[in-house]
């Protein structure tokens, strides 16, 4: 081995020998192979098939009166469904032109203006904002108030004040009838 190595050396002065090529190629294959072998371990920590399979929720909100709100569970998270009053809708539309951190029109955030459907998770660090119960603080903008770090959302669930960077997320959903939706 040592003998052939000393033979190969003078053949090229800049180290571009066949032996070098073999060394680099083997190392590269080894690194890529190890990386590929690691992937199953990493991916095993991503959501499993059964977790993904539980990703739709059907909701019937026929009993929810104007001004009331309900919270349902979707993917282990709370989803807020608020039956907005005409005043809340008007306020949300008026605020389309307000100074918004994450600009979005109210019309783009609802399928039917009276039903506001939102993921009830503060976009700051994931707390559940208050504002669903009549007794809850709703913040300065009549929407939701996060108790953890003081983020405030308006009647369209848009971030108006506090540390959260984004509006409350609108989950994918579709009306399956006038009073039922499927989330997910």
């Amino acid at each position: 081995m040592a003998d052939s190595a000393s033979h190969a050396q003078p053949a090229s002065t800049d180290g571009q020998t066949r032996r070098d090529f073999l060394l680099y190629a083997t190392t590269a294959v080894g690194v890529v192979g190890t990386g590929l072998a690691l992937w199953p371990f990493v991916h095993s920590m991503n959501p499993a098939a059964d977790t993904l399979a539980l990703s739709t929720t059907d909701v019937d909100f026929s009993a929810v009166q104007v001004g009331q709100a309900i919270t349902v569970v979707w993917r282990g998270k709370p989803v807020f469904i608020r039956h907005r009053t005409p005043e809340e809708i008007a306020q949300a539309r008026k605020d389309d032109s307000a100074d918004l951190r994450d600009p979005q029109k109210d019309a783009d955030r609802v399928k039917k203006p009276e039903w506001l459907v939102l993921i009830g998770v503060c976009t700051h660090l994931g707390c559940v904002p208050l504002g669903q119960k009549p007794s809850d603080p709703k913040g300065e903008f009549g929407g939701w108030f996060c108790p953890c770090h003081g983020s405030q959302y308006d009647t369209s669930g848009r971030i108006r004040k506090g540390p959260a960077p984004l509006n409350l997320e609108v989950p994918p959903y579709a009306f399956t009838s006038d009073t039922t939706i499927r989330i997910g």
Binding site: V42, M45, N46, P47, T51, G76, K77
Partner: peptide, 12 residues
């Protein structure tokens, strides 16, 4: 999502 193994802090 990867840390959670789902869409919220849960059993995984």
């Amino acid at each position: 999502t990867w840390l959670w193994g789902g869409f919220s802090v849960d059993n995984p």
